[in-house]
């Protein structure tokens, strides 16, 4: 199993943070354009999901949408009620990636960005501590530890 890359967006669609580990292919566009494309796709998927859904969403979770899989990779998505959006791309055999996303939110973002009064919440994250902590949490995760297939 392996983790490819990570995107974090704020509620207005601004890219707050990007990181990659085993990314095997670049999209061929700038990071900024790639982020816009990613956010636009997520927005459309959310709207698609809420309209095509045959039932009411009663779980109270904001997103409705959890993940999609292609032949090679899976995109895992988490959105908090405050509109923070976390995206993690893994290979498509990875399991329990949602737990990892929750962990990134509660143990890395909340601890090292929200509780750091010097971090402006509406600007891209420049904290080294955040970056190091994110890297550690991802690398310790069972999703990452098994070698790439």
């Amino acid at each position: 199993m392996t983790v490819h890359n990570f995107y974090m967006f704020d509620r207005y669609g601004q890219l707050l943070f990007y990181a990659e580990w085993n990314r095997l292919r670049q999209s061929g566009i700038t990071r900024e354009e790639e982020a816009k494309l990613m956010y636009g796709m997520l927005f459309s998927i959310k709207s698609f999901v809420s309209r095509i859904s045959p039932l009411d969403n009663t779980s109270g979770s904001r997103e409705g949408f959890h993940c999609y899989r292609t032949s090679k990779y899976a995109l895992h998505y988490m959105e908090t009620p405050t509109g923070l959006k976390l995206v993690l791309n893994t290979d498509n055999v990875a399991v329990n990636v949602h737990e990892l996303l929750k962990q990134i939110y509660s143990q890395v973002y909340v601890e090292y960005v929200v509780k750091n009064p010097l971090c402006n919440l509406s600007e891209p994250i420049k904290s080294d501590l955040f970056e190091a902590q994110l890297d550690a949490v991802v690398k310790q995760s069972h999703v990452f530890t098994s070698k790439p297939t």
Binding site: S59, G60, S61, R62, T80, P81, T82, L84, K102, Y105, S106, Y109, V110, V114, K115, L121
Partner: peptide, 21 residues
């Protein structure tokens, strides 16, 4: 605006659909 994130991270609660929640 910061404390809400800590609250959500601790409680794992979802979105409110009624003011009673």
């Amino acid at each position: 605006i910061r404390l809400i994130e800590d609250f959500l991270a601790r409680t794992g609660s979802g979105r409110c659909y009624d003011f009673k929640d």
